[in-house]
């Protein structure tokens, strides 16, 4: 049962990710240009996903809700592979400043936001 919820959630999450990425590529390119061609859509997706998952874990939801929304929607919404493929693209185009900036904001930002989310969840419990 939980596995199907995780699959269903992942379908929803992946579609949201695709919609945001497409929208961001059209409308947020100017933001990326200000910051060494930072891939802003994926960065936004991963950081918000980490924050929301922290909140859900802090709230302590039941196993079905966690499988659907935590593992499913947020797992499908955020992506580790796209981020690394984008890091390789930045490396290939010799944009080392963008590479370091993207890696640091994603990885450090993700850890900080999952903790902040957890505390928010605990407070709202």
């Amino acid at each position: 049962m939980e596995i199907l919820l995780a699959g269903l959630g992942a379908s929803i999450g992946a579609m949201i990710r695709y919609a945001i990425t497409n929208y961001g590529k059209k409308h947020w390119e100017w933001i990326g240009k200000q910051f060494s061609n930072l891939p802003t859509p994926t960065l936004l997706i991963n950081l918000t996903g980490a924050l929301i998952l922290g909140i859900i874990f802090g709230l302590g939801t039941n196993v079905f809700f966690y499988s659907l929304v935590g593992t499913g929607v947020l797992g499908g919404y955020t992506t580790f592979s796209t981020m690394n493929t984008e890091l390789v693209e930045l490396y290939k185009s010799r944009n080392y400043h963008g590479l370091i900036l993207y890696a640091v904001t994603s990885y450090l930002g993700g850890v900080i936001l999952v903790f902040i989310g957890f505390w928010i969840g605990q407070l709202c419990k």
Binding site: A10, S11, G13, A14, R17, N46, G49, A50, I52, L53, G70, T71, L74, G75, G76, Y77, T78, T79, F80, S81, T82, M83, S106, G110, V114
Partner: peptide
């Protein structure tokens, strides 16, 4: 994309 995850 859905197989990998950043949030988890």
């Amino acid at each position: 994309g859905a197989f990998t995850t950043f949030s988890t």
